[in-house]
Design a protein around this nucleic acid. Sequence first.
DNA 1: ATTTAGTTTCAGAAATATTTGAAAGTTCGG
DNA 2: CCGAACTTTCAAATATTTCTGAAACTAAAT
Lengths: 168, 168
Amino acid sequence: MKLEEAKQQFIQNWGVLGSQWGINRTMAQIHALLLVSPDPMSADDIMSQLQISRGNTNMNVRDLMDWGIVDKVLKPGERKEFFVAEKDIWTVAMRIIKERKRREVEPILNAMDQLKDIEGAKNDKEAKMFVDTITDIQKFANQASKAVDGLTKMDEHWFTGTLLKLFK
Amino acid sequence: MKLEEAKQQFIQNWGVLGSQWGINRTMAQIHALLLVSPDPMSADDIMSQLQISRGNTNMNVRDLMDWGIVDKVLKPGERKEFFVAEKDIWTVAMRIIKERKRREVEPILNAMDQLKDIEGAKNDKEAKMFVDTITDIQKFANQASKAVDGLTKMDEHWFTGTLLKLFK
DNA sequence: ATTTAGTTTCAGAAATATTTGAAAGTTCGG
DNA sequence: CCGAACTTTCAAATATTTCTGAAACTAAAT
């Protein structure tokens, strides 16, 4: 297989994976493109490689920067802005998981606190069961959250070394 | 707050969370409804509670059963089929994560093997970098995969006890 | 101050994903 | 075997998400 062909396929695959997990296809594709690009790319480079509009490019690159997995770089003497992806895959994964937790999971878990304040929950058996279910979900989420916070602090070596052995 | 109102809000929230993570809103809502329902529900019960069509109900309930987090139960003497959700949240989370890995992540990782077979990769520096990137992603995914397999075998108690302490 | 190179925004268009509902299929009881 | 009760399927309708492109904006260079 030719290098260019392989890159294209990788970009497509990454796009599919992203969209299955609720990340917009183009954002994932731009990320893939930057991941396998040896040099920083301009908005125009991205547009022509992926055949997408300037507006789309701009919005998704900005989102990727908000996620902390793409950075803007300036080349001396050039007016254009260029972009590079964080290349360490562990760092990428941790940033994504941390951000999603913060943006999507935490707000809903917080909203659930209110749901536990049910009229007459002391007596009503059904109400008690409901509150228990909510509480279980919150407990679980808090455990998972702490686990993620812990993982975030590790470096890759610790993961491959110590943690993996636990799971063998 | 009234119990019914709280249930409705929980169902809505669960639906939003699901759709953000690439799970169709209705499937998540049906799951939420069954999670907080003390008794098994028929397709008709689900339809009227969530105001959705029979076809939609049927398809999404079947999907939930494919995921292994909802079961069909038959009441003696009744012709209708009833459904219940797995109530243990740890089990639910593990089933979901395991299935998604199997269905969505593994096929793409396997497809990536082919991408490493690049013409002239021995000499070309850029080709070598590309192969390295793919290899890093595969390595990371394999580690994560093993970690998930390990988690799946634990019971909840082990998790809350031992593992959590590691991350404190 | 004006031109030029570049970036950002956002309303409407296009693409995707989900839902409906009616017809076809199944299964049980008599 | 037939009809009633229930489930499944899927083409078409609907809803949601994403993308485009042109106009507005910004800032550097002349």
